[in-house]
Amino acid sequence: MALLDYFLRKKEKQVTTASKAKERLQIIVAHERHSRNKQPDYLPELTEDILNVLRKYIKVSDESFSINLDKKDGNLNVLELNIELHDEHSTN
C-alpha cells in the first residue's frame, strides 16, 4: 500500500545508496586532496637537520619521530613535530 510504503521508506532514509555514496566520496576526496598538497622541497633536509640537533641531546629513533607540514584554511601553515621520548633521555 502506497501510504504504508511512504512511511516505511522515510524510516529507511539513513541507509540509502546515495548516503553511502556520499560517505565514500568524502573519504576518498579528503584522502586524495591530502596527498595532492605536496610537501615542500626543503622538508627532507629540514627533517635531517632537526634530527641531528635532537640527537646531540636525546636518543631518537627514526620510528619515534615524525614531521608534518599542514596547510590549514587561509594562509596558515603548521609545522608539526612528533617526538616520542623513551626512558633513558641522555646519549652520554
Binding site: R9, E12, K13, T16, T17, A18, S19, A21, K22, L25, Q26, V29
Partner: peptide
C-alpha cells in the same frame, strides 16, 4: 531519484566539492 535516495543530491555534491 534523489528523493528516492538513489542519487547524490545538489547539497551532497556541494558539500564534497
Amino acid at each position: 531519484r534523489v528523493a528516492e535516495g538513489e542519487m547524490l543530491s545538489v547539497e551532497d555534491v556541494k558539500d564534497i566539492l
